[in-house]
Computed example of a mutant assay.
Amino acid sequence: MNKNISSKELISSLDFFSSLDKEQIELLSSISVIHNYSKEYVVYYEKKQNNSLLYLLKGLAKAYKIDKHNNEIFLYYIYENSLITEISNIKQGTLNSFANVALLKDSQILQIDYKKFKEEFLDKGFLCSEFINEIILNSQQLQSLINREFIFNSTAKVAMMLYDDLDIFNNLKRAEISLILHIQPETLSRVLNILKRDNIIDSKNGKIVVLDKEALISIYEE
């Protein structure tokens, strides 16, 4: 099977492009390339213009910024079967990156020529609703970031991560989680112990198990 057929099959299997017909899938495939990258590869850096629309087919990525002291500030995760590229305006001819994006696992990325994509799809009214949904998602991620950094206390931060990113939580070291949430390791341990005491979570074989999802939600939505 050649790369072009593989691209068509992959694109046609993605929900994001499900509204396209066969001819459009063929066209999209002709302006797309599939790349495989290793863990820790930096997909792009903040404040850089990008000419490619990037879609994460397999793997996991994170968006982050670097402060003036060269400290990493975690923003959010990017999961497979979703856009990596930040979309703020579907009328712009170029893509501007707000943050750095790096891979946390070996990953597969669909790279699309954005200029041609805009001319053949967005400017003709195709996939606009999908892109508007991405803009809304970015807005929601920003709201979550503001809550996490400026509104939530330590317990709410931990509860939100346990609810939204339990698998990632269980695959990270406690020190790494503390850095992501900007809390002290001893604070993280204290919060986990409280949640266990209240029968909201449990620990089995070194992994956190959520016993009461509704209780977690109530902690950070109250």
Rank of each mutant, 00 (worst) to 15 (best):
K8P: 11
I11T: 04
D15G: 10
S18M: 08
D21H: 08
K22S: 13
E23S: 14
S29H: 04
S32W: 02
S32D: 06
V33Q: 15
N36G: 04
V43L: 12
E46A: 10
K48V: 09
N50V: 07
N50T: 04
S52P: 03
L56W: 05
A61D: 11
Y64P: 10
K65N: 14
K68C: 08
H69Y: 13
N71F: 11
Y76T: 15
E86R: 08
I90N: 03
G93P: 05
G93H: 08
T94W: 06
F98D: 15
V101G: 10
A102Q: 13
Y114V: 05
K115Y: 09
F117D: 03
E120W: 01
G125W: 03
F131Q: 06
F131Y: 08
E134A: 05
I135F: 00
N138M: 11
S144Q: 13
I151A: 05
V158S: 04
D164Q: 10
D164M: 09
L166Y: 05
D167E: 14
I168S: 09
N170D: 02
N171Y: 02
N171W: 01
L172P: 11
I180E: 15
D198G: 01
N205T: 06
N205L: 04
I208M: 00
V210P: 05
E214I: 08
A215S: 15
I219V: 09
Y220L: 03
